[in-house]
């Protein structure tokens, strides 16, 4: 049911009955390695190209999520997927493998929550039974498309982020024991005129705060209603800017309650960390793996995930356009 100006409250609380998270070599050396279902030690995992490797990541995550939900591929009624590559080709090929009705979405790095919100909507409105939501990203494939060839010797600034090589998928069902999706807030595009593609965190922060503010207003909620508020991939500098923006929106956010997946996925000791991780997989692997695990252990009961996306294209940047951004929020609850 719609509540407020841009939020949905799911009275029939769709349940996350299965979730799986796959990662690459960098993620394997990061602090959240234990929360992955599958880790690869190189960037190709037997595939011929980086693009095919990204497709394989998403296929693996989807397959594992379905297995963990104790279902078969044919039980999935809808697959909602998206990624960063042109024409969201990895999701398309995964949809081909799964052979179930497919909805492709593009939200850049906000895809994880965009697909989760839509999946929850399908279940809550009784327009479907089991829905699979997944997204993936691959460092090399994304660099090649959005920035430079991977072996090119350009000097990245400190505000740059490292695209996470990984995939996260969840199966949503109408009943069962597990974390429940209780509400979602669909974001609006927010563009504050920033143009630097090597500082996405600064571009996306206003979108994150805009959506969080809308969520709190629509649901008459506040930070105290959640154990943790987590943004997708604002990185170190975006995280800092977000903290500075909260007071301007009259949000009283205690610093320890607000974290960012981009800062969690890699540790300070890892080389070339820059501002943190990014990519569709960043929020997906951290939330569908680490955060859900913490909820299952009873450490967290209510979380608000705000996945952020920078919706620029390589061409729009060259044509001197600024970076339009979006953030989608989903609230998940779990009482053990």
């Amino acid at each position: 049911m719609k509540q407020g100006s841009q939020s949905w409250v799911f009275t029939n609380c769709p349940v996350i009955v299965g979730a799986a998270v796959v990662g690459g070599p960098r993620e394997a050396r990061g602090p959240l390695a234990e929360d992955f279902d599958l880790l690869h030690d190189d960037l190709l995992f037997g595939e011929k190209t980086f693009e095919k490797a990204e497709k394989k990541l998403l296929e693996e995550a989807c397959e594992l999520a379905v297995q963990k939900a104790k279902l078969q591929k044919q039980d999935i009624e809808f697959f909602i997927g998206g990624d960063l590559l042109n024409q969201i080709i990895s999701s398309t090929f995964t949809g081909r493998t799964l052979s179930v009705p497919y909805l492709g979405v593009f939200g850049a790095c906000s895809t994880s929550m965009e697909s989760l919100a839509l999946g929850a909507l399908i279940i809550d409105s009784r327009f479907g039974g089991n829905v699979l939501c997944g997204t993936a990203s691959h460092y090399a494939a994304v660099e090649k498309q959005y920035r430079y060839p991977t072996e090119y010797g350009s000097q990245k600034p400190d505000t740059a982020q490292w695209t996470v090589t990984g995939a996260g998928a969840v199966v949503l069902g109408p009943t069962g024991a597990g974390p429940r999706v209780v509400s979602a807030t669909i974001g609006k595009i927010v563009d504050m005129g920033l143009k630097d593609p090597f500082n996405m965190g600064a571009a996306m922060a206003p979108a994150a705060v805009d959506t969080i503010a809308a969520h709190f207003q629509d649901l008459a909620a506040s930070p105290s209603d959640y154990d943790l508020i987590i943004t997708g991939d604002l990185g170190r500098y975006g995280h800092q800017l977000t903290l500075e923006l909260f007071p301007k929106y009259h949000i009283d956010m205690p610093e320890e309650k607000y974290v960012d997946c981009g800062m969690m996925i890699y540790s300070r000791e890892q080389p070339m960390r820059f501002a943190g991780g990014s990519g569709c997989a960043c929020s997906a692997v951290v939330v569908f793996g680490h955060i859900l695990n913490r909820m299952r252990r009873g450490e967290l009961k209510k979380v608000l995930i705000v996945a952020t996306g920078a919706l620029l294209s390589p061409l729009s940047y060259q044509q001197k356009e600024s970076i339009p951004c979006i953030a989608h929020a989903v609230a998940i609850e779990y009482t053990v």
Binding site: M192, G193, A205, Y237, L241, E244, L245
Partner: peptide, 13 residues
């Protein structure tokens, strides 16, 4: 937009 761009600039390392 201008105010935010100033914030972002100040925040940039």
């Amino acid at each position: 937009q201008k105010e935010y761009q100033q914030m972002a600039k100040a925040n940039e390392p």
